[in-house]
Simulated scan of single mutants.
Amino acid sequence: MTHRPTTHDAHRDTTIDQDLALKAAAERLEDEFDGVVSEAAIEDHLHSSYDHFADHASVRNYLPLLAERYTRECLVQPCGVRTGIRLAAGRSVPCTDRWA
């Protein structure tokens, strides 16, 4: 993982554990999609996903995991890469650049 200025909202309310989990998730995704998707795009989508889930969550314990899985699913679709991640109940979630 390269060090670069963050492009996500730095003032959001996260715990140290969540920050570490997001960093670890970014590293895993960057390793998995190395040479396919830029690190900046991965981190931006990961943090955007986290922020979206955080806006609607009453329990925040698993938000980094949800954001990682959602980001992976969105990256898999356009790349044609298969990782075996399935959404609950066979539903598909559209991946967009912007949240509605």
Rank of each mutant, 00 (worst) to 15 (best):
A21E: 05
H45A: 13
D34L: 06
L75C: 13
E43S: 01
I16H: 07
V59Y: 07
Y62C: 08
P78H: 10
I16Y: 09
I16E: 10
H45E: 15
G35Q: 02
A54L: 14
K23G: 02
F53W: 13
C79M: 09
A54P: 05
Q18P: 06
D51F: 02
A21P: 01
C74I: 01
D55C: 06
D55G: 15
Y50E: 12
S49G: 10
L75R: 03
A57Y: 09
K23Q: 10
L29A: 06
A25Y: 02
E73Q: 10
H47Y: 00
H56V: 11
L65N: 01
D31G: 11
I42R: 04
V37I: 15
L65H: 01
L46Y: 08
R60Q: 06
L20N: 14
V36W: 03
E39I: 00
A21R: 00
I42D: 10
L46I: 01
C74F: 02
K23R: 06
R28W: 02
L46P: 11
A25V: 04
H52K: 07
L63E: 05
A26P: 02
R69G: 11
G35D: 06
D31T: 13
R72V: 13
Q18G: 08
L66K: 10
H45R: 12
E43V: 02
A26H: 01
E27R: 12
N61M: 10
C79D: 12
G35C: 05
S48Y: 00
I16M: 08
S58N: 03
L20C: 07
E27P: 03
F53V: 15
R72S: 12
Q18V: 09
Y62D: 14
D51H: 08
L66V: 08
E27W: 03
D51R: 05
A40E: 11
V36K: 04
S48G: 15
V37H: 05
D19K: 00
A67H: 07
L20E: 06
Y70V: 13
L46W: 02
H52F: 13
S58H: 03
H52N: 05
V76T: 14
L22Y: 05
L63K: 00
V76P: 02
L46F: 05
A54E: 14
D31K: 10
L63Y: 01
E39P: 03
A57V: 13
Q77M: 09
A25K: 02
L75V: 11
L75N: 08
L22E: 10
D31C: 08
E32P: 02
D44K: 00
P64W: 00
Q18A: 14
E68V: 07
L20G: 07
Y70K: 15
E73I: 12
D19T: 04
A54W: 05
V59E: 14
A21V: 00
A67P: 13
T71M: 05
L20P: 03
V37K: 05
E68R: 12
E30I: 02
F33C: 08
S49D: 10
C79S: 15
A40R: 11
D31P: 03
A24Y: 04
L65S: 11
G35W: 01
R69H: 13
D17E: 14
L75D: 00
E68A: 15
D17W: 09
